[in-house]
Structure formats: C-alpha cells, structure tokens
Design a protein around this nucleic acid. Structure first.
Length: 718
DNA sequence: GACCGACTTCTTTTT
DNA sequence: GAAGTCGGTC
C-alpha cells in the first residue's frame, strides 16, 4: 500500500486518497482538492483496486473534467476515453445516447441550451394563446427547470394554487412539444437519464457493477436530482467519494442543496467527513480574513483553514469616490505591479456582477493594460453561430421547429411573419412539424417558402456526400449567411466567428464518425465555449466571483463592496440569501495568494442611473487589524470649476448625465458621507436648493432614507 | 414584407 | 445601458 502517488501528501490528504469506504471530503479552498481527487483515481488503478473502465468521475464544469483527465493521463498511461469522466450533463447525455430507445428519444435528439429553451417556451405560449405578461417566459422556464430538478414530472406535481395549476399545464405541453421535436433541455437530460436508471433494475445493476468507484467534485453544488442520479450508480458494493466545501456553495439560487452533504453522511454511512484544512495557497492574513467572514454563517459543517506560510501583507481597503475612480485606482495599481515586474497573468479583478466590468475595462484600456474579460457571450452562444447551427440542426432533425423558425427567414428571403404564422397554424391543425407544413405551403407565399424548402433539401443532399467539416462550410455559404454578413458593414467579426466554426468542425473528433453532426451539435450545447485564458497570456483577468471559483491569483482586486451590490440587493430578503453572499465573499477572498485589495465606491452608475451605496456590511466583519485602509480619510473634494464634481479627474470624455440635484447645498453635496446626532452615519443621496430652505436626502445606515432640512438638522461631514 | 426608431423592461450568478 | 418588443412608415 505504498504507492509513489502518496508521497508529498499530508495525513488528511493521504487518508482521503486511500479510504476504502464511501467518504465525504470537506476540502477547504486551496487545500489540494483536485490533487486528492485525481491522485485517488490514479492510486486505485495502480493498486489494482479499480480498472480505468470502472471509474465514474463527475464534475460540474467541463473545465474541471478536462483538468482531471489531463492530470490523470500525466500520472498514468491510461486512455482517458475508457474512464467516464465528465460533467453531470455530459454523462447524462452519454447515457441517453446509448439508451435513447429506452426513453423514447430519437438517436439524433438535440439539446436545448437556456436560450433555446426560452425561445421554445415563448413559442409554446404563443400557440397556447397565453399572454406572456400573465406567464412571463422566464418565470415559466424557472418553474419547469426547478420542478424537474426536484425530480418531478408535470403529472405528479401538486400545484399549490391556481397559477401553478396553469404553469403545470404549460409544463406538460412544453414537454410534449419537446418530445415531438426530438429535443431535450438541460434539466431533462438529467431527469430522463435518472428515470432510465431508476426504472430499470437490470440496467442500473449493469452500471453499478461496472463503476465500482464513483467520484464527485464540487459536491456542495449538487441539486436534489443530481443527488438522486448519483444514487442510482451506488449499489451495495460501490464506493462514493464526494469532495466538496459547504462554505463554497454559491449556486443555491439554481437549486444546489448544501443539505446533500449532510444527507450523504447518513445515506452512505460515511461517518465523519475527512477535513482538508491545510491551505497551500494564501498567506495567513488572507485566511484569517476568510475564516472571520465565514464564521458568521450558521449551520456549517465546520472547518478552519490554516497555513504554515507566512503572515503576508495586510489586506488593503480602498474607498473611491465613484466606480470610475475605483477603476482608475485599480488600473494604477496594476500598472505599478507591472512596473515591479509582476506578470499581469497573476492579477485578477473580481466583481459581483458582470455590469461592473464596463468601468474597469474602460480604465484598464485607458491605462494601456491588456486584460481579458470572462463571461458574457461565449462562442456557441453568438447569434451567427446559433444561426449556422440551426441549419445543421434542421438537417439532423427535420422536426426541430426551434431551428426552423430561427432560419426560415434568415437571411431575409421574403418569408414574413404572416406566412410563418400560417405555417404554424397549419402545423398545429395537422399535428405536423413546421418543416412538413412548410413543404405544403401554397398561395402567395408558395414561391419564397418553396425556395427555402429547396435550399434545405439541397443541403440535405450535400450532407450525404460531403464530409462533416465541408458540410458546415457549405451550409454557411449556401444558406446565404456569408453574403448577409458580408453586406453588413459590422459583419466582419461575425464572419470570422463563422470561419472559426468551420475550424472547430475540422478539428472535432467524433466518437462515431457517422454521428459527427449529432455529436458536434450536442457538444455545442453542452459546452457553450471557452472562457479559459490562453496559457501564459500576459493579461489581467476580469471576472465575476462566481467564475473565479477554483482559480487562484497572486494579486486579487475585489471590487464593489457595497450594500446592494455585494451583498446584492436581491439577497436582502432572506437570511439564506445573505449567507450565500457571504460564502461568495469567502470564495473571493480565498482566490488571493499574496495580495488582496478590497475596494468600494461612494457613487455608482447602475441601470443607467447614479446610486449612492453604503459600504458593504461585510467590511465590518473583517477584523480591523488585518486591514490597511489606503485612503479612508474624509474625502473632501472642492468643487472643480470646469468639470462636474463627480468626474474626479476632470479628464473624462463624457460627463455623466445626472443633473437633477444641485451640486452643493449649504456646504453639502450628493454622495457625501455625513453623520447625524440621532440617525448616525449616512450618505447624501439627493438635494434640493431652495434659497433659504435647502434640503438633503440622506440614506442612513440604520435609519434608512430621510429628507432633512438643513436649517435644523445637525449634519456634519465625516 | 422590410426596415427603422421609439419604447419598455430588466438587469446575479450558469451547467 | 442594452436587448428585446412594438408600432409606424415606406
């Protein structure tokens, strides 16, 4: 039992790697979680306790799955294809492809991503003649997905009220529509494969005896359905090795159940969790901050990170006047780091929501620093890519109405809304697919629709003779997409993306060449594209805290620590929401290896208007001795003659539009922090100059918003 | 039927 | 601010 792989592991890691039972591993941030996971697989195989084909490795993201595979192939001479390592959705897809008949799906079933699903729901509401005001498509979608993720079906759902009765009807119709069209959404992928296994004892036993060892990453992010799905694989002789960190559970909003971790301990008689608490990433000050913050949460499984690395520097806190100034500060700091010889690849700027990236990008751009933003539109989500894929989908599956609607008049070919309505009506009456109905269109629109039908038929013939990659290229040209974007003066980037799509098709290696198209389309839905940096890229990383989970950087700037933003205002309503925000902060802090800078602004543009947020309550949860305020002395800015006072540097190209409030009223100004003998600390959010009776609105930390008459109120600047 | 501009709404996180 | 919807005009 003394394998080369165990060298260099600490006792807890070693225990985790070699445990003979099912176990829950509580792996703190930076505690070597991925290493433990991959080492365990390598160790099991090397010790002869498992064969590569007997491993089921489940992750949450494609990136994590890939990393596990590459690390493994570096440790062992195995073919990673033998092992089933993938995301929940990827593995569910694999199962359903293998057993599509048992669940009544066509071999060519396609996967709807969230965009597609929303479109499908909108279309359904239309055919059901339901108003999307009474039934907001997004709400319908989250109802359907949420229910499926609890393992429910429309006919087994107990609606709580009238509205849910109606939603359940829509849900039922939606599932029918998907079946008819041979498409499957993300939640359905899991649910259908779960039902496949739970309803078929022989099949379940087959997989149970194949996958003796089941390993799950990021276990705290599993939802109820995923938990049940995993359980199908866990017979009496299987071991389940679940790695997670309840303190890093940040996806409750989409159904993740941290409770699964407690359930796991009893369901798998796993005893006490194995705790990995030694952190190999950060300085002790950073860990002390993280520990202090998370200690405010209740109901934790409990865990305290420690390190034998040094204390490191203090955590710096910066207060900016505006989001723009905050961004400029970060840009300056980053430039200084660069001067010191720090690689920009080791610097990250994190934020709570994507909207914050704008100001940061602007400042970094002005400073001439290269950066890369993660998030936003990914490759396979771009409209031109979606258009091209829709042609392919329609070729693969004529019943795919979503695909047909997307492209029937794109590029414009004289098929207007009225004609499309007619086709939809005809299809509904006859129960046909839109494609079938389109083939039978007569009357005025016959010519234009006929041309479309001919085009698709021509492409279908081409599909029989061309290789897959040539087909993709041919479809993009013959459909007219190329011509359309060539005619568009802003279309060059889209054309580049389309040729990138051809490249992707060329380098795509299908498991079964005959199924190249179907596999490629599934790949496009499941892995909507890369957010990963090109290795060694000399650029600052900008991303949301969510996206940063699992990553680490020497220097981290955590921005926007303001009430309403972080914690986000949507979380104020319930305590659980606030705890999730706190976990999010915990994740953010633990990304930093050596240097952490927190920042907040006193004014922020949000949703097109200026806000005056208070500093985040989380700042008060950090032990003051760990912090080093950079500039937290009263920010008294004299009004600048030429520039608006909220444009601090005076070299802004555009002046913000807020003009409602006068700039200075009786010595006070909007955005200023003030104290009141009775109401305490607050920020001026509005002001009215009325000759001798000036008033200001103050947002008090504890007392809320109040209008105060400056003749009487004893306000003083902070 | 196509196009353009005005209007509204919604803005947390995403496999 | 941006995207999506709606309505009016050609």
């Amino acid at each position: 039992m003394n394998s080369e792989f165990l060298a260099g592991l600490n006792p807890a890691q070693r225990e985790a790697v070699t445990t003979p039972h099912s176990a829950l591993v509580l792996a703190g941030a930076g505690s070597g979680k991925t290493r433990v996971l991959t080492t365990r697989i390598a160790w099991l195989i090397r010790e002869g306790l498992a064969s590569p084909a007997g491993i089921l490795g489940v992750t949450f993201t494609n990136k994590a799955a890939r990393e596990m595979q590459t690390r493994l192939t570096a440790m062992l001479p195995v073919n990673p294809k033998q092992m089933w390592i993938g995301t929940f959705h990827g593995l569910a897809n694999r199962l359903l492809r293998l057993h599509h008949r048992d669940v009544g799906l066509p071999a060519t079933f396609q996967i709807l991503d969230s965009q597609d699903q929303l479109a499908a729901i909108k279309r359904l509401l239309k055919t059901l003649q339901l108003s999307d005001e009474t039934y907001p498509p997004r709400q319908v979608m989250s109802f359907i997905n949420g229910s499926k993720e609890k393992g429910l079906r429309a006919d087994r759902f107990a609606p709580a009220d009238h509205f849910e009765v109606k939603l359940t009807e829509i849900w039922r119709e939606y599932d029918r529509q998907c079946r008819r069209e041979g498409v499957v959404d993300f939640a359905e992928l899991l649910l259908a494969s779960y039902e496949l296994l739970s309803g078929n004892t022989a099949l379940r036993q087959h997989y149970q005896s194949r996958f003796r060892h089941i390993l799950v990453d990021e276990f705290q992010d599993t939802n109820r359905l995923q938990y049940a799905w995993l359980k199908c694989f866990a017979g009496d002789d299987n071991t389940v090795f679940a790695v997670g960190d309840d303190d890093q559970s940040i996806y409750a909003f989409r159904g993740a159940e941290v409770g699964n971790m407690r359930d796991f301990l009893s369901d798998y008689a796993a005893g006490e969790p194995i705790r990995l608490e030694q952190n190999y990433r950060s300085t002790s000050r950073i860990l002390a901050a993280a520990n202090a913050v998370i200690a405010n949460n209740r109901g934790r499984l409990g865990k305290t990170l420690w390190t034998d690395a040094g204390e490191g520097e203090q955590i710096r806190v910066y207060r900016g006047w505006s989001d723009g100034e905050e961004a400029e500060f970060i840009a300056e700091e980053a430039r200084a780091l660069k001067r010191e010889g720090v690689s920009l690849a080791d610097v990250a700027v994190l934020y709570r929501s994507n909207a914050q990236s704008r100001a940061l990008e602007h400042a970094l751009f002005q400073a001439g620093l290269s950066y890369r933003v993660y998030g936003g539109l990914r490759f396979f989500e771009r409209q031109e890519i979606k258009h091209a894929l829709a042609y392919l989908r329609l070729l693969a599956n004529p019943a795919d109405d979503n695909a047909l609607l997307r492209i029937i008049n794109l590029p414009a070919r004289g098929i207007g809304a009225r004609t499309v309505d007619g086709i939809q009506m005809a299809a509904r009456d006859s129960g046909d697919s839109l494609w079938q109905a389109a083939c039978q269109v007569g009357g005025r629109a016959a010519a234009s629709v006929g041309r479309f039908v001919l085009l698709i038929e021509e492409l279908r013939t081409a599909a029989d003779t061309l290789g897959f990659a040539e087909l993709v290229s041919h479809v993009i040209d013959a459909s007219g997409l190329t011509a359309m974007y060539q005619a568009d003066k802003d279309g060059s980037e889209r054309l580049e993306n389309l040729s990138e799509l051809v490249n992707a098709a060329v380098s795509f290696v299908p498991d079964d060449p005959a199924q190249a198209m179907v596999e490629f389309l599934a790949h496009a839905s499941l892995e909507s594209g890369d957010h990963e940096a090109a290795a060694g890229e000399e650029a600052i990383t900008l991303m949301t805290v969510h996206a940063a989970k699992g990553l680490e950087f020497d220097s981290v700037f955590l921005t926007g620590l303001e009430e309403g933003l972080f914690p986000h205002e949507q979380s104020f309503a319930d305590p659980d929401g606030l705890e999730e925000e706190r976990r999010l902060l915990y994740v953010a802090i633990t990304r930093a290896r050596r240097r952490l800078t927190l920042s907040y602004a006193q004014t922020r543009m949000l949703h097109g208007q200026t806000r005056y947020p208070l500093p985040s309550r989380f700042l008060d949860e950090l032990p003051p001795e760990l912090l080093h305020p950079i500039n937290i002395e009263p920010v008294v800015r004299k009004p600048v003659e030429t520039a608006a006072p909220w444009a601090p540097t005076g070299r802004k190209t555009r002046t913000p539009v807020r003009t409602a409030a006068p700039e200075w009223v009786g010595g006070f100004r909007v955005g200023q922090t003030v104290t009141h003998p009775k109401f305490g600390l607050g920020v001026i959010t509005d002001a009215e100059a009325g000759g001798g009776e000036s008033r200001v609105e103050v947002n008090f930390q504890d007392a809320g918003r109040k209008w105060l008459d400056l003749r009487y109120a004893k306000l003083s600047a902070v």
